[in-house]
C-alpha cells in the first residue's frame, strides 16, 4: 500500500491542565488538499504544530510520509513547509533578502535557490516593495511574503494555518489559485486550517471537522453537505458542532 502523506492516530495533547487534543485520527493522501475546520480553540493549530514538529504529542502518533514527527523530526522538516497562524519576518531585512535567506536554506540536493527565489518574488506579488524593509510592510503584505516563502520551496507537504487571514479578496483569490495549481502540477500535498468556509469548499478535496479536541466528521465537501442536508459548508459546520438544529 502507498504511504499516506499524513497519518495521525489517536493524537492527544495537553498544555499543562488544558486538554487541547483528545485523540484525533485522520489520513491525507499524497497530492490531496485537506482542510481542517472548527470553532476557535478546537485544536486546529495544535494539530498543525505537532505535524510541523514544533510540539510533541502527549499520546498517539503522527507521521509525514511514513516518518515520525518526533523520532525523525529532521527528516520531516526536509519535506514540509509550515506557515504559522501568527507570524512575522525579520524586520531589518528587505522582503527580497528574506526570501533569499529562506531559499538558500531549502536549496539542497541540487535544487536551485535562484529558481525558488524567482517563484517567491512572483508569488509575493510585492513588486518593487520587495526591496523595502519588512518593518515597513502592512499586515497583509507581510502575510503575502510569508505565504510566498512557504510555497516557493514546493515542499512535499505544505502546512498552512489560516493562510488567507488578513488578505484582501483579490489576494486571497490569487492564493487559492496558486495552491490549486501547485497541487495539480507539482503534486504538493496541503494541510490547511481555515475559518473561511467558502475558501474550504472551493479549495479542499477533503475536510475534517474538529471540535473540542475531537474530529467530528471527515469527508469531501459534497459528502458532508449531503450528510447534513445542508446548502453549504457553513450550515454543515453549525449543525455538526450542534449550534443549530438540523436533520440528522
Amino acid at each position: 500500500m502507498e504511504v499516506p502523506a499524513v497519518r495521525v492516530e489517536g493524537l492527544e495533547k495537553d498544555y499543562g491542565k488544558v486538554r487541547a487534543l483528545k485523540g484525533i485520527s485522520f489520513q491525507i493522501g499524497e497530492g490531496e488538499i485537506f482542510g481542517l475546520i472548527g470553532p476557535n480553540g478546537a485544536g486546529k493549530s495544535t494539530t498543525l504544530k505537532i505535524l510541523a514538529t514544533l510540539l510533541r504529542p502527549t499520546a498517539g502518533k503522527a507521521e509525514v510520509f511514513g516518518r515520525d514527527v518526533v523520532e525523525e523530526a529532521g527528516k520531516v522538516r526536509e519535506m514540509i513547509s509550515y506557515l504559522p497562524e501568527e507570524a512575522g519576518a525579520y524586520k531589518n531585512l528587505t522582503g527580497r533578502e528574506y526570501l533569499e535567506f529562506m531559499a538558500k536554506l531549502y536549496a539542497k540536493g541540487g535544487r536551485d535557490a535562484d529558481e525558488m527565489l524567482e517563484l517567491g518574488v512572483e508569488l509575493s506579488g510585492l513588486g518593487e516593495r520587495l526591496d523595502d524593509k519588512v518593518s515597513t510592510y502592512s499586515k497583509g503584505m507581510t502575510r503575502r511574503l510569508l505565504l510566498a516563502r512557504a510555497l516557493m520551496v514546493k515542499p512535499k507537504l505544505a502546512i498552512l494555518d489560516e493562510p488567507a487571514s488578513g488578505l484582501d479578496i483579490i489576494n486571497a483569490y490569487t492564493i487559492r489559485k496558486t495552491i490549486k495549481a501547485l497541487s495539480a502540477s507539482e503534486g504538493v500535498t496541503f494541510l490547511i486550517s481555515s475559518h473561511n468556509m467558502l475558501e474550504v469548499e472551493y479549495l479542499c478535496h477533503r475536510v475534517a471537522l474538529i471540535s473540542g479536541g475531537r474530529i467530528v466528521e471527515v469527508g469531501t465537501p459534497a459528502e458532508l453537505k449531503e450528510r447534513y442536508e445542508a446548502e453549504n459548508l457553513e450550515e454543515v459546520f453549525m449543525r455538526a458542532v450542534g449550534l443549530e438544529g438540523g436533520q440528522k
Binding site: 510541523a52 529532521g74 526536509e78 514540509i80 507570524a87 525579520y90 536554506l105 531549502y106
Partner: peptide, 13 residues
C-alpha cells in the same frame, strides 16, 4: 516578532 516558529521548522539542525 513571531519568526521563531518558522525558524524551528526549517530543514536545519
Amino acid at each position: 516578532n513571531k519568526t521563531l516558529e518558522t525558524l524551528l521548522t526549517l530543514p536545519v539542525k
